[in-house]
């Protein structure tokens, strides 16, 4: 079975004035379907650039990147946009919801661009919201929801199109411990019960502990790629609440 993500000698360089900055320096990583990977590293280590490339938001300067067998490194902007819509769901640290649209409208957004019919949009969005425990909050604006609830809306949005890959960039960075736990419970459930591939960026060891594989970046290179033999389990109470 081929890897879901295949990066080969990926470089990313920026011109800053006359200086060249190498954000990624020859990164080669394979991530298989069904893995739960935590990306760690200090800020400036290249993990954000890595996520942008993996998320098809950016292209490598050199090297190749294949997702689900498709070569993404040479794609046009629109091709990458379609690929994002099809295969990738994003969860951001700052939620990135449309502030003046309801929860349902936010979750419908990827479906609009995927060309899903009006009626299906609504049903699928509501189902996705129910799956993250937000039934009854469909018509709330993000401002009327707690941080944890907003992040759940974002997760529903990321999953509504059944992506192959869920990219979570510091998903608990803006949340308190209790809410972080809730969010992680949802992610772990998605992984264990639905087999969704998750790549999660974090600098908190607590959060990384849920993942079975830890990749650590420094100065644009992978310095460690370890298996976590004992991924942290969900606290029983949370697991029950989520099931």
């Amino acid at each position: 079975m081929p890897a879901l993500l295949e990066l080969r000698d990926v470089w990313k360089s920026y011109e800053l004035g006359t200086q060249r900055v190498d954000a990624l320096r020859g990164v080669s990583i394979d991530i298989a379907t069904g893995e739960f990977v935590a990306i760690m590293g200090a800020s400036g280590s290249g993990k954000s650039t890595f996520m942008n490339i993996v998320g098809c938001l950016d292209q490598p300067t050199r090297g190749t990147y294949r997702i689900d067998g498709q070569e993404a490194s040479a794609m046009s902007g629109d091709e990458r946009a379609s690929l994002r819509g099809d295969k990738i769901g994003f969860v951001f640290q700052g939620f990135n919801l449309l502030g003046r649209s309801t929860a349902t409208e936010n979750v419908e957004l990827p479906l609009i661009y995927a060309g899903v019919s009006f009626r299906d949009q609504r049903t699928r969005a509501r189902a996705a919201l129910a799956a993250v425990g937000l039934a009854g909050r469909e018509d709330h604006l993000p401002g009327q929801l707690s941080g944890g609830q907003q992040q759940r809306v974002a997760i529903a949005r990321a999953l509504v199109n059944n992506p192959s890959l869920l990219l979570a960039d510091e998903p608990t960075g803006n949340l308190d411990t209790q809410m972080s736990l809730e969010i992680m419970a949802i992610l772990v459930n998605l992984h264990t019960r639905h087999g969704i591939t998750i790549v999660l960026v974090t600098h908190e060891p607590d959060i990384a502990a849920y993942a079975a594989r830890h990749i650590t970046f420094r100065d644009g290179q992978v310095i460690a790629d370890d298996v976590n033999p004992n991924p942290r389990r969900l606290a029983a109470s949370v697991a029950v609440a989520q099931s």
Partner: peptide
């Protein structure tokens, strides 16, 4: 701008 970014992230193409 941010809204545009979000739309692009979830699959909006240039023409959208």
């Amino acid at each position: 701008t941010r809204e545009i970014g979000i739309r692009m992230a979830v699959g909006a193409r240039t023409r959208h």
